[in-house]
Amino acid sequence: MRRNLAECLLELVQGDITRQQVDAIVNAANSRLAGGGGVDGAIHQAGGPEIMAETNRLYPQGCPTGQAVISTAGTLPARYVLHAVGPMWKGGRQGERALLQSAYRHGLQLALENECASIAFPAISTGVYGYPVDRAATDSLEAVIDFLRERHAPQRTRFVLFGPGAYGAYCRALQELLPE
């Protein structure tokens, strides 16, 4: 599914984020930047040890929830990995929406600062962090759409969703937010 926003293209695809031919891929990282399972584990496995070595060197204190940091992409086809830390779901009354949207905005801002014309996001916080996929779809897409409308960049923003459930949730949310 695709939507145009002025000079920008917003895409939803089902697939593997580690295979995306974009300038930057976003890692759903933990605050220690310590690697883990899910998207985080897949990115570190596919990109090799250079990613972890660089994050350990550059960010020994990790990254706060709602923010993002940048590293090499190692052997991935992207130029950079942007490590965005989303919130753990605690029922929706602990500022989770604001933190999730902030993580996406920080990722987009880092992409612009590093002259990335294209970026690929996963469904941050929807795995072991327990953020309900339907809510995450709406909350993350709202943040990205607002950013693209305001900044008119990056040129291509892609959500790479693992599995038909997440893809369907994001398609429904995008259709509600930006009807054809």
Rank of each mutant, 00 (worst) to 15 (best):
R2G: 13
R3L: 10
N4D: 13
N4E: 14
L9Q: 15
L9H: 15
L10V: 09
E11G: 12
G15Y: 06
Q20V: 11
Q21W: 11
A24Y: 01
N27F: 01
N30K: 11
A34G: 15
G35R: 00
I43D: 05
H44A: 07
A46R: 06
M52C: 14
T55V: 14
N56R: 15
Q61M: 11
G62S: 06
G62M: 01
C63K: 03
A68F: 00
V69G: 03
I70F: 04
L76I: 02
Y80Q: 08
V81S: 01
L82V: 13
H83Q: 10
G86K: 03
G91W: 03
G92E: 02
R93N: 15
G95E: 08
E96W: 05
R97M: 11
A98F: 07
L99Q: 14
L99A: 11
Q101P: 08
Y104T: 07
R105Y: 09
R105H: 10
G107I: 00
L112P: 14
L112I: 10
E115I: 08
E115Y: 14
A117F: 08
I124C: 07
T126Y: 04
T126V: 04
T126R: 02
G127Y: 00
V128A: 14
Y129I: 00
P132E: 02
V133E: 08
R135W: 13
A136S: 04
A136H: 06
A137L: 00
S140E: 07
S140R: 04
L141W: 01
A143Q: 07
A143R: 06
V144R: 04
E150M: 11
E150A: 11
R151T: 13
R151Q: 15
H152S: 14
H152Y: 13
P154G: 10
P154R: 08
P154F: 01
R156E: 14
R156P: 13
F159Q: 09
V160E: 00
P164E: 15
A166W: 02
Y170H: 10
Y170Q: 07
Y170E: 09
Y170A: 05
C171Q: 14
R172K: 15
R172W: 12
A173P: 09
Q175F: 12
E176Y: 09
L177T: 05
L178R: 08
L178S: 06
P179F: 00
P179S: 01
P179D: 03
